[in-house]
Simulated scan of single mutants.
Amino acid sequence: MSHLYYNAAPQETRVAKPRKAPRSYPTHKPAHIYLYGTCVVDLFFPEAGMDAIHLLEREGIQVNFPQAQSCCGQPAYTSGYTQQAKDVARSQLALLTEDWPLVVCSGSCAGMFREHYSDLFKDEPETLAQVTALAERTYELSEFLLKVCQVELTDQGEATQVALHTSCSARREMNTHLHARELLNQLTQVERLDHDHESECCGFGGTFSVRMPDISGAMVADKTQALQKSGAQQVVSADCGCLLNINGAFEKQNIPLLGQHLASFLWQRTQVKQEPNT
Rank of each mutant, 00 (worst) to 15 (best):
residue 117 Y to V: 05
residue 241 G to W: 04
residue 9 A to K: 09
residue 172 R to V: 14
residue 259 G to L: 01
residue 215 I to Y: 09
residue 274 Q to C: 02
residue 239 D to A: 13
residue 177 H to P: 09
residue 72 C to N: 13
residue 205 G to I: 02
residue 200 E to W: 12
residue 118 S to E: 11
residue 18 P to M: 02
residue 27 T to K: 07
residue 68 A to H: 09
residue 31 A to Q: 01
residue 191 E to S: 12
residue 204 F to I: 08
residue 196 D to C: 13
residue 202 C to G: 14
residue 29 K to F: 14
residue 1 M to N: 13
residue 47 E to Y: 00
residue 72 C to T: 01
residue 171 R to H: 04
residue 186 Q to S: 13
residue 183 L to K: 08
residue 98 E to K: 10
residue 193 L to R: 11
residue 166 T to S: 15
residue 8 A to I: 15
residue 121 F to Q: 12
residue 75 P to D: 14
residue 189 Q to P: 09
residue 168 C to Y: 14
residue 224 T to V: 13
residue 70 S to F: 04
residue 115 E to A: 06
residue 53 I to V: 10
residue 229 K to C: 10
residue 199 S to Q: 15
residue 179 H to T: 09
residue 208 F to G: 06
residue 6 Y to S: 03
residue 267 W to D: 02
residue 233 Q to F: 09
residue 242 C to I: 02
residue 11 Q to T: 14
residue 47 E to L: 01
residue 257 L to E: 06
residue 166 T to Q: 13
residue 207 T to A: 00
residue 93 L to V: 13
residue 174 M to Q: 05
residue 42 D to F: 07
residue 273 K to M: 02
residue 152 E to V: 12
residue 146 L to Q: 11
residue 48 A to R: 04
residue 90 R to L: 15
residue 31 A to F: 09
residue 143 E to M: 10
residue 198 E to M: 13
residue 6 Y to L: 11
residue 10 P to S: 12
residue 57 E to M: 07
residue 203 G to Q: 06
residue 219 M to A: 06
residue 120 L to R: 03
residue 22 P to T: 11
residue 259 G to S: 01
residue 35 L to A: 00
residue 29 K to P: 02
residue 24 S to H: 15
residue 52 A to M: 00
residue 45 F to H: 00
residue 185 N to V: 07
residue 261 H to Q: 12
residue 63 V to L: 00
residue 193 L to M: 13
residue 58 R to T: 13
residue 242 C to G: 05
residue 224 T to I: 11
residue 175 N to Y: 10
residue 68 A to S: 02
residue 50 M to F: 00
residue 143 E to S: 02
residue 13 T to Q: 14
residue 82 T to N: 09
residue 26 P to D: 11
residue 68 A to L: 03
residue 251 E to T: 07
residue 127 T to Q: 03
residue 223 K to S: 05
residue 111 G to R: 10
residue 246 I to V: 12
residue 271 Q to R: 05
residue 31 A to M: 06
residue 104 V to N: 00
residue 138 T to R: 09
residue 81 Y to Q: 12
residue 225 Q to C: 12
residue 230 S to I: 15
residue 125 P to V: 08
residue 185 N to H: 08
residue 105 C to Y: 01
residue 216 S to E: 04
residue 79 S to F: 11
residue 215 I to F: 04
residue 128 L to A: 07
residue 159 A to T: 11
residue 119 D to Q: 13
residue 106 S to G: 08
residue 35 L to T: 04
residue 187 L to I: 05
residue 202 C to M: 06
residue 70 S to L: 00
residue 165 H to D: 10
residue 119 D to C: 03
residue 72 C to K: 02
residue 275 E to I: 10
residue 54 H to F: 01
residue 268 Q to M: 01
residue 170 A to G: 03
residue 269 R to S: 03
residue 36 Y to R: 01
residue 24 S to V: 04
residue 220 V to Y: 06
residue 201 C to W: 14
residue 60 G to W: 06
residue 254 N to R: 04
residue 100 W to K: 07
residue 137 R to Q: 07
